[in-house]
Amino acid sequence: MIGLRALPAVLATEYMKLRRTLALRMTVLPLVVVFLYFLLGITGTSSLVRNNPDVWGSIARNSVSLWTMLMLPLFITLETSLLAGLEHTDRNWKYLMTMPVPQWTVYVSKYIVTLTLVAVAHVVLIAGTMVSGVLLRQFAPELKVGALPMAVVAWPVLKVTAAVLMAVAIQHWVSLRWPSFIAAMGFGMCAMVVGFMAVNSPEYGPWFPWSLTLHTLRPLPGAVIHPAVFSAIAAAAITVIGAWQFARRDVA
């Protein structure tokens, strides 16, 4: 197996490793957000639902915003750290790297697996929000929840998925580069905080990787590059450089 031909097999083994892991179980995390807004709706205590002509739209937009702002940065930090931890624990690299496959395929496969987990979480978010709307319509008819506006949920989530590619690529590199779980988590937390601060900056908001997702939902006037497109291009470049470096490093 040479180069690209080895990639499907390596990728398949990375998916095999997910079985019974916390990383896989965490993909249902968006249900926390969904449940929170369902509770607000069903109890009717929030201004979000009281006297609101577009209850469903408000719940959907707020679910996506809360996930993107607060939970997604934590999610990608945890996922990349947990996936890297599978190999850092017991120094599993030293066996994996004696397999007759190009080392870069291991790096790229792990990145693809992380993106898959993000995608699964986002499918859960979309599906959960839809189900929540259906249940509200059934059990709280006074809210006058209208038809399910798929586009209000799905399109922003799709853009957020693209916009997070760059942050995942950087966090992936950090998690594989240093074996310490704390270091990777610390890096992710710091990046998230800086992302909050940078998001309103016209200079840095459209460029800072951890601000891109928020910027996708609330674009600043004058931004010349679409955050999702910029993120995808940058993520590809970072992954190529990361894989190149990964293939050349010593395995301790």
């Binding site: 095999m16 490793k17 019974r20 892991t21 017991d90 690299w93 030293k94 066996y95 994996l96 004696t98």
Partner: peptide
């Protein structure tokens, strides 16, 4: 080549 370097590299959750 087959190899075993120091401690075996295994995934405890599998």
């Amino acid at each position: 080549v087959g190899s075993l370097v120091e401690m075996p590299s295994l995934y405890p959750h599998l």
